Computed example of a mutant assay.
Amino acid sequence: MAWKQVGRPQHFHSSNERMTERSQKEVFLGGEGDAWYGRNEQHLRQPGPDIVLDTLEEMRIAPKSVLEIGCADGYRVAQICERFGGTGFGIEPSSKAVADGRSRYPSLSLEVGTADILPFADGQFDLVIFGFCLYLVDPRLHLRCVAEADRVLGEGGLLVIYDFIEPAPYYNEYAHRPGIRSHKMEFSRFFLASPGYRLLRRNMALSERGIAKPDQSVGVDVLVKNYATAFPPNPFV
């Protein structure tokens, strides 16, 4: 049976589904990023223990060049460069966070932007970090973000994904802005679908009782990029 499309299909959307492809991105660039930074600014100035830093120390990772996507004011990148050396870069939708970061950490290179368009060269970094931001990305931009992170990460480099780690994808309404959604899943799956990436370590953040709460499973995945050995010679000949 042949399929035939007559005209354009009609779609019916709820109020939360009227978002255009770029609208969630535009909301964060247009003010919600600054609002997030305002709610968290004091905490960021005294961040306390950091699971990303702890993981890097456990693995004895000393990057020469590091990029954090969703870097806020760059506090984590600054600590990485202070502890391990190297040069630090960051991209963040909050212009206020970037302005504060440039003032507080003048050695860093911070830019206003989002994960789907990274203003950096191919293979520029040996460490790329998603800093608890993928859950706020519109799913229609997920693959663009994956492609951009892969593009700027050099061969043999490490990718750190700090975010929710949930066994099945789902969404919650974003508490701070109507019409925005928080999307949760195991984001490493995007990269591990390629044999060019391999999971090296997963560290889960535990609650006070030592277990992860439902809908609050947060952790760090560390992946290594290696396309050179991703496809070995044909084993069947």
Results as ranks from 00 to 15, higher is better:
residue 204 M to A: 07
residue 111 E to Y: 02
residue 34 D to H: 09
residue 193 A to P: 09
residue 37 Y to I: 03
residue 231 F to L: 02
residue 83 R to V: 08
residue 145 C to P: 07
residue 3 W to C: 12
residue 137 V to D: 13
residue 154 G to R: 15
residue 22 R to S: 14
residue 223 L to A: 13
residue 51 I to V: 08
residue 183 H to S: 05
residue 148 E to R: 09
residue 67 L to T: 11
residue 11 H to C: 06
residue 217 S to T: 01
residue 174 Y to K: 03
residue 210 G to E: 13
residue 9 P to A: 09
residue 217 S to H: 06
residue 69 I to Q: 04
residue 120 F to T: 09
residue 149 A to H: 00
residue 29 L to I: 10
residue 113 G to Y: 14
residue 217 S to I: 04
residue 12 F to Y: 05
residue 90 G to W: 01
residue 81 C to L: 06
residue 134 L to Q: 05
residue 172 N to A: 14
residue 233 P to W: 04
residue 152 V to W: 07
residue 63 P to K: 12
residue 10 Q to E: 12
residue 179 G to F: 14
residue 44 L to D: 10
residue 19 M to N: 14
residue 219 G to N: 05
residue 41 E to G: 05
residue 74 G to Q: 07
residue 119 P to N: 00
residue 87 T to Y: 09
residue 2 A to C: 12
residue 87 T to P: 07
residue 40 N to I: 12
residue 24 Q to I: 07
residue 188 S to T: 11
residue 157 G to D: 14
residue 204 M to G: 06
residue 188 S to A: 15
residue 86 G to Q: 00
residue 130 F to P: 09
residue 182 S to P: 09
residue 123 G to A: 13
residue 110 L to A: 10
residue 146 V to A: 08
residue 237 V to Q: 02
residue 224 V to E: 15
residue 66 V to Q: 06
residue 12 F to N: 10
residue 98 V to E: 02
residue 40 N to E: 15
residue 40 N to G: 08
residue 204 M to F: 06
residue 1 M to N: 13
residue 8 R to L: 14
residue 175 A to W: 11
residue 90 G to V: 02
residue 14 S to W: 13
residue 91 I to S: 00
residue 28 F to W: 02
residue 229 T to K: 15
residue 230 A to T: 11
residue 135 Y to C: 08
residue 133 C to R: 03
residue 126 D to F: 04
residue 119 P to D: 04
residue 172 N to H: 15
residue 133 C to G: 06
residue 109 S to T: 04
residue 48 G to W: 08
residue 198 R to W: 01
residue 206 L to Q: 06
residue 112 V to E: 08
residue 64 K to N: 03
residue 221 D to N: 01
residue 40 N to A: 15
residue 187 F to L: 07
residue 143 L to H: 13
residue 81 C to Y: 01
residue 82 E to A: 09
residue 19 M to W: 13
residue 62 A to K: 02
residue 205 A to L: 05
residue 89 F to T: 05
residue 155 E to V: 07
residue 203 N to C: 08
residue 113 G to E: 11
residue 141 L to I: 07
residue 204 M to I: 15
residue 45 R to S: 14
residue 216 Q to H: 05
residue 148 E to V: 08
residue 95 S to I: 00
residue 197 Y to Q: 05
residue 191 F to W: 03
residue 126 D to Q: 05
residue 178 P to A: 03
residue 70 G to M: 07
residue 81 C to N: 02
residue 223 L to R: 11
residue 3 W to H: 14
residue 131 G to F: 12
residue 20 T to W: 09
residue 127 L to H: 01
residue 216 Q to I: 09
residue 115 A to Q: 08
residue 17 E to N: 09
residue 44 L to V: 10
residue 84 F to N: 02
residue 203 N to G: 03
residue 146 V to Q: 13
residue 8 R to I: 14
residue 76 R to S: 13
residue 85 G to W: 03
residue 49 P to T: 03
residue 186 E to A: 11
residue 15 S to D: 03
residue 35 A to Y: 15
residue 147 A to R: 10
residue 38 G to T: 13
residue 111 E to L: 02
residue 31 G to P: 12
residue 138 D to N: 13
residue 70 G to Y: 01
residue 180 I to R: 04
residue 136 L to T: 14
residue 217 S to E: 06
residue 235 P to R: 15
residue 141 L to K: 11
residue 141 L to F: 08
residue 220 V to W: 04
residue 70 G to R: 05
residue 161 I to T: 02
residue 145 C to W: 03
